[in-house]
Simulated scan of single mutants.
Amino acid sequence: MLNRLPADERRAQLVESALTIAERSGVASVTVRAVAEEAGVSLGVVHYCFESKDELLAAMGEALIRQLSESMSASFSQVRHASELRGVTGLRELLHIGLSGMWPIIEATPDRQLLTYEITAQALRHRAVGAGRAGAIADEQYRIMDEEAVAFLDECAAIAGIEWNMPVADIARSGLAMIDGLVLRWLVDRDAEAIVAALDDLARSISDKAIPKES
């Protein structure tokens, strides 16, 4: 007999089953029947939890955003253990700690990283045809990433005792754009050594936008 889970837990189970299918075979392979089989439930259970495939895709995107936010926050929080690093030189080290802290998570989850790009592209297609919730996923993804990056840069600045010479939101945006490109390139060539060098370059580039805080 099927275990009767609370509605939120059942939805979460179905979303994770859908993500597993999408990681394995792509977003196009996510169907109500496939999700039901992966989760070990009836078609009716999936239809009860999600009125349409678009609603399920939106929920998948939202789950990926939460996971992304949690992993970024965990990686960036490592700088709190390096409070002795001061000045622009210390800032570069702090930035490297946070940026390089992200990489093991990315390297361990290549299929989920690829799926994140696929979900983003799918959301942009939905937005182009006026879809509401599903179309907003890409905007929400980058809004959350921007918030995490700004918080990280602000924390690094506070620890190092520096100020930014341009709006921190602009620095975060350009830094995230570079990370996006690095992850996509790594998914193609899996050149880990090139990533280490690129992250160091990114830390140096961002630290160049800092000045000592006036007393």
Results as ranks from 00 to 15, higher is better:
Arg66Ala: 12
Val88Ala: 09
Gly132Phe: 04
Glu70Gln: 15
Val45Cys: 10
Ile105Tyr: 15
Glu148Arg: 15
Arg80Val: 06
Val79Asn: 03
Ser73Pro: 04
Tyr48Ser: 13
Ala59Asp: 11
Leu57Trp: 03
Phe50Cys: 10
Arg112Gln: 10
Leu56Trp: 01
Arg92Ala: 12
Ala74Gln: 14
Glu155Phe: 06
Ser77Lys: 12
Arg112His: 05
Leu56Val: 06
Leu114Arg: 15
Ser71Tyr: 02
Phe152Ile: 05
Ala157Ile: 06
Ala138Gly: 05
Arg66Gly: 02
His81Pro: 00
Ile65Trp: 06
Glu51Gln: 08
Gln78Phe: 06
Leu68Arg: 13
Ile144Arg: 14
Leu115Gln: 02
Gly132Asp: 10
Tyr117Glu: 08
Gln113Ser: 14
Glu118Thr: 08
Ala131Arg: 14
Ser75Met: 08
Glu155Met: 12
Leu57Asp: 07
Gly87Trp: 08
Ala158Glu: 14
Glu140Trp: 09
Leu114Ile: 08
Ala123Ile: 01
Pro104Ala: 02
Ser75His: 08
Ser100Glu: 09
Met72Cys: 09
Arg66Thr: 07
His96Trp: 12
Gln141His: 13
Gly87Tyr: 04
Glu140Thr: 08
Val45Glu: 12
Leu68Phe: 10
Thr89Cys: 00
Ala128Ser: 14
Leu114Glu: 13
Leu68Val: 02
Asp111Ser: 15
Glu84Ile: 08
Ala108Val: 05
Arg112Ser: 13
Arg125Ala: 13
Gln78Lys: 15
Val88Phe: 09
Ala149Gly: 00
Ser73Glu: 15
Asp111Asn: 09
Gln78His: 10
Ala59Thr: 12
Thr89Asp: 11
Lys53Leu: 14
Cys49Pro: 00
Val88Trp: 07
Ala59Gln: 11
Val150Glu: 07
Ala74Ile: 07
His126Tyr: 12
Val45Ala: 15
Ala123Cys: 08
Thr109Met: 10
Arg92Ile: 00
Glu118Trp: 04
Leu153Arg: 07
Glu118Cys: 01
Phe76Pro: 06
Leu115Ser: 05
Met145Leu: 13
Arg66Asn: 04
Leu124Ser: 00
His96Met: 03
Ile105Glu: 13
Thr109Lys: 13
Arg127Trp: 01
Glu70Asp: 15
His96Gln: 09
Ala58Trp: 10
Leu91Val: 00
Ala58His: 13
Ala63Asn: 07
Ile119Pro: 10
Ala158Arg: 13
Val129Gly: 00
Arg125Cys: 06
Asp154Cys: 11
